[in-house]
Design a protein around this nucleic acid. Structure first.
Lengths: 147, 147
DNA sequence: AATGAAATTGTATAAAT
DNA sequence: ATTTATACAATTTCATT
C-alpha cells in the first residue's frame, strides 16, 4: 500500500488522540471531513490501522507493580503455555522470541504477594526469570514513516 | 478513586474501541450520553484514562522485524542513554528494570541491515543482547478490574 | 479522489429530578 | 449524579467536479 504524506499526517493525529473527530483531523491536515473519513476507512480495511485503544493506567486502578518475566519452556510445554497465557489478566503483552528464553511477557500486578502467586503458576511450564520495572522510559511510541 | 461497575464497563468499551461515540457507549452500558461524557472526563482528569491511541501495524508500514533488546549500561552511561533512547523512532517501548540488565526495549526495524545499524548505535552505552520476536502472543491486553 | 450540501446522528450545556 | 431538552457540531451519503 501507498501511504502518502497526507495519510501519515492522519495517522499521527490518530496515534496522538484516537478520539479526535474527523472534522478536527481535517482541520489539522487541511482536507474535508469526508476525505479524512474515507482515508481512515481504507487504512482500517487494509490493516494499516489495527484499532483504537483507550489507555488505562494500571497504577491508578490498583496494579502497583509491573514486571518483565521471561520463560524458558520445558520440552512440550511451550504450546500449552501459548494457549494458557491468553487467559491471564496480568499479562498485557507477550512475545515468542528467539534465544534461550522462549517467551517474554510484560505483566501488571497488585503487590509482591500477587507476583508470587503469578510466578507460581508458571513453574509447570518452564523456568521463569523476573525483572521488576522501575520506570517507563518510552511508552507506546508512535510509529513513524521510515525514510 | 472509586471505579464502579459502570465505569469499568465504559473503560472496557474504550479499550476495545476508543473511537466509539459517547452515545454508542451509553447504549451499550445503559446510560445517557451526558452521563458517559461526564464519567469519561472525570477518569481522564484523575489519570485513570491516560489517552487514546490509534494502533498502527508496524508490519503494514514497512517494519518487517520486531526485536527485544536488553542493555547493560556501562558506568555513567545509563543516564545519557535514558535521554537518547527517547529520540529513537525504532524504540516503541522502553523500561528501566532491576537485574543485570538495566534496560529492556521493544524495537521495530525494517530488516537485518537496519537491526545492525541500530545495535551499532548502542555500543557506546553498554552491552546489548538482542532477541528477535517470532510472534505476538498477547498484544496490549485490556486492563481489567482486580478482584 | 476530493469537495459541497442534505439528512441523520452525536455532543454539550443547561435546567430539573 | 443522572436525565431530559435544546442548540450546536459532526458524520454519512450522495451528487458533482
Amino acid at each position: 500500500m501507498e501511504i502518502d504524506r497526507l495519510n501519515w499526517k492522519i495517522l499521527k493525529c490518530l496515534q496522538e488522540n484516537a478520539r479526535l473527530s474527523n472534522a478536527e483531523i481535517g482541520r489539522r491536515v487541511g482536507v474535508s471531513s469526508p476525505a479524512v473519513s474515507e482515508r481512515i476507512k481504507k487504512m482500517e480495511d487494509l490493516g494499516v490501522i489495527e484499532g483504537y485503544k483507550g489507555i488505562v493506567s494500571p497504577f491508578e486502578v490498583g496494579y502497583q507493580l509491573k514486571a518483565i518475566i521471561t520463560l524458558r519452556a520445558f520440552m512440550g510445554k511451550l504450546k500449552p503455555f501459548l494457549v494458557k497465557v491468553k487467559t491471564y489478566d496480568e499479562v498485557v503483552n507477550c512475545y515468542r522470541i528467539t534465544g534461550d528464553e522462549n517467551i517474554v511477557m510484560e505483566v501488571v500486578l497488585k503487590n509482591q504477594k500477587h507476583l508470587e502467586t503469578f510466578i507460581d503458576q508458571l513453574i509447570i511450564y518452564g523456568e521463569s526469570k523476573t525483572q521488576i520495572v522501575l520506570s517507563d522510559v518510552v511508552k507506546q511510541k508512535e510509529i513513524e514513516s521510515l525514510k
